[in-house]
Each structure stands twice: as C-alpha cells, then as structure tokens.
Design a protein around this nucleic acid. Structure first.
Lengths: 199, 199, 199, 199
DNA sequence: ACCTAACCGAGACGGTACGTCTTGTCTTGCC
DNA sequence: GGCAAGACAAGACGTACCGTCTCGGTTAGGT
C-alpha cells in the first residue's frame, strides 16, 4: 500500500513541496535565533540564510512564530512520555527531568524564549502557541495528577492547575528572567515542595 | 536643601527638560501598549501621539525598554513595603497581595508583558531590567525569608532563591502564558504551599 | 534514418499543441492589454485568465512581445495589400487609410502601444519587432514609392526612407503621444504634404 | 532683501532636503537607463546606486517617470529658445537642429525613450508627461508657425498642429523605431518638405 | 540687554524588514 | 510530449520604523 492518497482528496497536480527547503528554513531560523538573538531573526534573513525565496516561507507558515514552533519540534522531541513510575513523586520527577533536559540545551532554550516573545507580539500566534504548546504540557501534568489522585498519594489540596502554574511558572521564569542554566537541585526542590503532605 | 548644584557640576545654562513632554511620552507609551498591543508601540508612534520629536525620546532614554520602565513606575507604586506582619505566612501573603494587585490592573499587566518582551529583544535592556527590577523583587522576598529564618518559622529546606523562583515564576507565567486575571485563591495556594512544614 | 514520416520534417510523437489554449492565451493577452492597460498584462495574469499553465506560454513564445505580436495578427489583418491605384497620391492615400483604420480600433491601438513599449523594454524583442513588423511596413511603402518613381509622379527629392519616416512617424506619434483618435483630415494633410511638387 | 520667505508661507521646520542626494538619485537613474536599459532602472537599484534610502525617492517624486523627467532636465537644457531667425524655414531649421542635438546625445535619447515607455505604463505619469513636456514643444512650434503666418511666409494649408505631428512624429519615430542616430540630412528633408509652397 | 548653551518640534536622511507580486524554471500527474 | 497546476529562487514593489542628523525657535543661566 504505497502512499495512497485519501479517498475523495486525490493528489493535487503541481510540483511537490521541497523537503530540502523546509529543512533549510527551520535550520536557518534556529541558527539565527541562537547565534544572533531573536531580534535578528527576520523572515528576510531566514530566507537569505536558507537560500530560499521569502515566498516559500510565507506559503507554508502563517507566521514567524509557526516557523519557530516547527523549528523547535525539529530540534526537540516535544512528545511527553507519561510512563507510570509508580508514585506521584517519581512521575513528577520524571517530567521535571524531561523538561529541564530541554531547557539545558541552549538552542532549545533560545527557541523557547523566542516563542514566548512572539506569542506576546503576535496575538494570533499567541493563541495557537497557548493551545498547541503550553496547554498540552499542562494537560500532560494533569494526567499525572489524576493518576496520583487515583493512587491516593497526592498531597491534599493540590490541584492540577495549581501544580501546572508552579511547575511551568518556575521553568519559564528561569528561562526568561534568570540568566544561566537551571540549578542542579531545582528539580529536587520542586519535587519536595509538591509532594510534602501537609501537617 | 533647595536644588543645589553639586560642586564641580554646576547648573549648566540652557533650557531645562520639559516635564510636559516627559509626561506626554510616558502616557503615550502606556496608551499604545495598552490599547494596541506592544507591537504597535514604536518610538515613531509614541513620539507622534505625544506630540513630541523623536529626538526628545532618544535624548532622555537609552532604549524603548527604559521608557516603558519609567512608564510603569509612573503608573504603579513599585516600592515594596516590607512591614513585619509577625509571621512568615503573613509576610508572604502581604507581598503576594501587593504583587497580585499590580497584576490585576490591565494597564500594568500590559506594561509588564512589554517589559519582559523587550528584555528578550534587547540584551542591553535585559540586563538592566533584571538588575533594576526583577532582582529587587527577589531581594525583597529574601528579606522576608531572612526574617522568617530569624523568627524560626521558615519551613525547613526553603531557600530565598527557590522561594523567589516559585513566587515570581507563578506570577510571570500567569501574566505571559495564561490569559485572563489571576485566580482569586492563587495567593492562598501559594501561601499554603510555601508555609507547610514537612512531616 | 528512421523517424521519417513527412519528407525531412517528421511527425514527432506526443500530444499535439492545443489550439484551444493558444486561442485562449491570445485572447486573454488582448483583453488584459485593452481593459487594464499594458502594465497589468503580466504573463502570470494572462495564464490565469486563459486558464492555462504558464509553461504553455513559455513553451510556444520566446517573449511576451511575441505573444502580443501574434495577438495583434489575430485581431488585425496585418497583410498590406498594394493594388496599383494609378497614381502616387492614390496609392499613398489607400495605404494611409488602411493604416488609420487599424489605429482607429482601440483594441489594435492598445496592442500597438504595448508592442512598442515591449520593444523598448526587451532589446531582443525590439529587434524582431523592428524587422518583422516595422520594417515590413517601410518596405511596403517603398514599393509604392518605387512604383511612383517608375510612373514619374513622385515629387522630386522624396526618398522612400524619408517618406516612411514621415508617414509612420506621424502615425506612431499620434498613437503614443497624443490621446484620442486620429483627426479625420490627417490623411488629407499627409497626402497633400507628400504629393505637392516643389515650385 | 535676502531670500525672504513668501508671505503666509513661512519656513517649515525640520532638516532641509539634501541636494547631494537629489543629484545622486538623478545621476544614478540616468546611469542605469543608459548603461543597462530602462528595464533595469528599478527604484530599488536607483536608490542603491545612489547610496540613498528608497524613501528619499518616494518622498520627493510621485513616480519613477517624474524622476526620469527631472534627470532629463538635468542633462539637457530643455528650454527651447525661440529667437526670430527671419523666416519660417530658418526658424524651423533652428528648432530642428536644437531638437536633433538632444537626440544625438545617447544619454538623452535613452532618457527620452524611457520617458515615453513610462508614459505608456503609468497613465498618471502619461498625463503629466504629455502636458509638461510634449505639449510644451508643440506650443513652441506653434509660436514659430504663428510668427510665419504673420510674416506671410507660411506654406498655405499648413497648420500648427499638423506641423507638430510631422516634426515630432519623425523625431520620436526615429528614437523609438529606428536604431542608430539621426541621418545628417533629415533636418534638410523636413525643412524642404514643410516650406515648399504648393503649386 | 546680550551671549551662549541646551532643549524643543519637525522632519529629512541611509538603512532594514515587511508582506505581496511577478519572473522564468522546475516538477508533478493526467491525457 | 503537451497540458494545468503549482512550488521554487530571485528580486522589485511601496510602506513603516530604526536611530541619526539638521533646521528654526525657545528658554535658561551667565555677563
């Protein structure tokens, strides 16, 4: 069954999208953001560095933010695995370690910063960034919280929303507001904070 | 001590800075950020709306971020009072309520978002934003933590740095990533989280 | 020498040129030039309006000018009949009337203007326009001049080249430089001018 | 009375127009048209070659045609002197020689071609080119015709309009349609043609 | 009452980027 | 192999801002 076009859809005529150009654009965007800062990553420069016409970018991505989002997906495996580690604290630690690993990578950290900036500058992209990226990570954490609640090892009074505010709040704050990498023991502190039972 | 020129400095001759223009610029910047979003707040538009020459902005502020910072200071009393409320939880609650009050004000919230964006776009301003704004708030919280430690009612294992990451992380994350106002009970949750003694 | 159906020419395999597309292209080019002006008549728009792929245009015509030239030939009978009217003045009048008839037709006039513009913009087409269009009309007039010289009723001192400069100069100048149709008595004036004997 | 601004007009504030840039733009436009042909003379290239921002061109000229018109005025003394040479034939010859002198200059000839092209491509400019350039030359010739009529040495039946059609028709036709310079004896032929009395 | 210095609004300057359009070429799958 | 469709690199379009640089005009000491 070799690549059969869906029923009723057919295969439109015309030249197919160039995978080479797509890759070049995402790599150029990443390089510019990482090497020269987000302010330098104009569509113009991305196209030039990628050896690509500007139209090829505008044809496939609705905004610069979406280019960056795909560039991030290309660099980082943004899929969040949620294996059951047996306890709330182990589940949480695993998720924190996965997240921090991304934040430690300078390229990914720069892309994340750029995405949050773009979300503020372009309200349209802001919405899709929230629903397609931020919200998904909140949902993943909510799954862990639900699992803990079933198990019965969730600290009383801890809601999924509040846990997400704390976990992702700390991560984004460190990315945006505090220069330098994450402290080594930040994950420990967060796990401790969110697993201690109240008196 | 009425406006005495320091020795060696003198009062130079020449026209004095126009307070009217200064006010108009800060107000125009605020209006644009609030009404049309940060992307619309160009120096060009600020000057035009304020009825001011562009040079007057460049003469008095090193970057657009600094204009916004002063615009914020004009809108919000950014001084953080630190009266001793008698306990770590009361001190913390007081600080959270002060901070949330700012975040509830849409004008101030927009300015804060704009400042964080500008800090990412302009590395020079980023540094001064961190040291002159973000760092001061961390220091204020650290004062409360120190006071609690002296009193002996600080939860064990809680450091000033980590408390700041959590408190300001949550606030900034809500500002930047979650649309809408702060939940009413967010402060409660945070106080609970950061004051519970471990088992 | 296989591959020989016709003598020396061969009928290559493959689909034959679509006469429908050819017609549609020429009509679309004419419509665009007439309705929206030459500046609007891009290859892109011609192809779109004709419901044709751009490649089909590039495959069959070496330049936009050649499309226009063929569009003109399709609209106007560009063959110049040269019946002997018995005298220089009658021959000349007949030719002028034939030429003016074309110039009166707004569609043809627009196409002619477009051709002259294209000849300036595209030097390659300029050459072929001159040799295949302008030069032929000069040659036709030269035939009349030769005939008059044989007859002996050519005004002394009038050369074929100069007569062509005057006749076609006036026509093109009116087309390009003077808005509106040709004066009714312009032909009379030209005939008078070019047939008067010197004192 | 040194340079007094007109009453009620004043001197607007702000930096004054840069004469250096104006000159550079006109020269760059001329160079491009002459060296690389009109098709290469984009606003973009003119600005780049002149070392000037594009806005500086758009600020001062309503269209590319107007730039070319001023570039022509800078190269050629477009003022048409009309001294009384004593006879229609001498007046006419003088005007033809003035006009041909311009046409002999390759730079001016290229600019004239470009102007006529632009007049066809840009209807707005076409109107101003006709009224501000072409019409003025017709008027100048009409002055000579009037003078001849007063003197009584105008060939009967020759109107100013028709004389203009012939004179400028030949000139423009040679510029646009016939490559190479003007024939040396073209002026002679024209003078002869337009001064012979009818039988 | 001058003089000099610094500020002010206005606005032109050389640049860079925007998002769109067109050019001529290069694939596609269908006919 | 022609054809409609349409992606591609290139580059011009006219506009918006950037940060700088004049302008004429206004305040302010200092003389």
């Amino acid at each position: 069954m070799p690549e059969q076009p869906g029923p009723g859809e057919g295969r439109r005529p015309g030249r197919r999208r160039s995978e080479v150009s797509r890759e070049a654009i995402l790599q150029a965007a990443t390089d510019l953001v990482v090497d020269q800062g987000y302010a330098a990553a104009s569509i113009e420069k991305i196209a030039q560095r990628a050896g690509v016409g500007k139209q090829t970018i505008y044809r496939w991505w609705p905004s610069k933010g979406d280019v960056l989002m795909e560039a991030l997906a290309r660099k980082a495996d943004t899929f969040i695995p949620l294996p059951d580690e047996g306890s709330w604290s182990a589940d949480l630690r695993r998720m924190l370690e996965d997240s921090f690993r991304l934040g430690q990578n300078p390229q990914i950290a720069e892309l994340l910063r750029a995405l949050m900036v773009e979300a503020q500058l372009d309200p349209g992209f802001g919405t899709s960034f929230r629903t397609e990226f931020l919200e998904r990570r909140r949902t993943a954490l909510a799954t862990l919280v639900d699992r803990a609640r079933s198990r019965g090892d969730l600290p009383p009074g801890l809601t999924a929303d509040f846990a997400a505010d704390v976990v992702f709040g700390v991560i984004w704050y460190r990315l945006l507001a505090v220069p330098g990498p994450f402290d080594a023991d930040l994950a420990d502190h967060l796990v401790n904070l969110l697993t201690r039972t109240s008196a």
